[in-house]
Amino acid sequence: MNEKLLEIKNLKTSFRIEDQYYAAVDDVSLTVNENEVLAIVGESGCGKSALAFSLMRLHNRAKIEGDILFKGDDVTNYSAGQVNKLRGNEMSMIFQDPLTALNPLMKIGDQIGEVLLLHKGKFSNLNRKQKAISLLDKVGIARPEHVYEQFPHELSGGMRQRVVIAIAIANDPEVLIADEPTTALDATIQSQILDLLNELKENMNAGIILITHDLGVVAEMADRVAVMYAGQIVEVADVHALFGMPQHPYTRSLLSSVPNAESVDSKLHVIQGIVPSLKNLTREGCRFRSRIPWIDESVHEKSPELHEISPNHFVRCTCYKNFYFPDEKKEDKRHGIS
């Protein structure tokens, strides 16, 4: 068993809206192990970024409760100085939009140099430059010496995302958080960036948290998957189990809404309604209930909890046993496990 790098225990992140706090991440517990890709999926607004930002302590006005243990050390108690030593060094992050993630007035070289300077102060200027150029080379940028001197606006979106990745891996982080790293990119560029992340994973031994709403990306990249809905984890499983035997109604609904080769002649499944906003979210009982109104009220649990239904496969609530799609017959609703 690989070493546990990150243990998130009962994390709750709340934002203040009109004098009241609302949790965007609500009692999330997860672990990330060495040399593993943990994917977090869910529609936008489910709290994925809020979770990632909490881990990096990047929120400036949020109430954070619970524990975040990095190699056994609770980072929620860290001072600002300790947090700064951790960020960009042992824990780093890749962002969604490469077009805005870089400082428009700073040379690429200086932006990579900065993260080296901050954590590897003993490097000489020359060393730092060489290291920055070798990082550019490592993330697959041709003519790294040239790009070192360029400004962000001179590079394409895909190139900029490579630079953002170079910054993130500069100090060989142990935990790498990628928040929708390919959402803003074209399909061909996306596959190149994913291949790059895979390659880096092989060589880094890091734990990667990959946040995405694209299930195809999850299927290609993840070792384990956590499905998030309205601030809660509703299902966690090994990637094969999750795609092979999805259990929670939300997971199943997401999977059946993706167009694929088999869906050509059939209708896609539509998840009714939308992810509720923080203020409008009903927090008692099951949060997904309002989006599957055809399911009989009597089957819903009062306060659904995560259950381990088979080794390392967790599902919130037990009533997944009663779920069916409206066009399925109630009787033959479940394949596989009874």
Partner: peptide
């Protein structure tokens, strides 16, 4: 509120560095 300021923080830059090197300059 720009994204690249978050990048700077995520690099481990201290608040004063974030202000001096990134926010004020820009």
């Amino acid at each position: 509120q720009k994204d690249f300021i978050i990048t700077a923080r995520a690099k481990g830059a201290s608040e004063s560095r974030v202000y001096n090197r990134h926010i004020f300059r820009n």
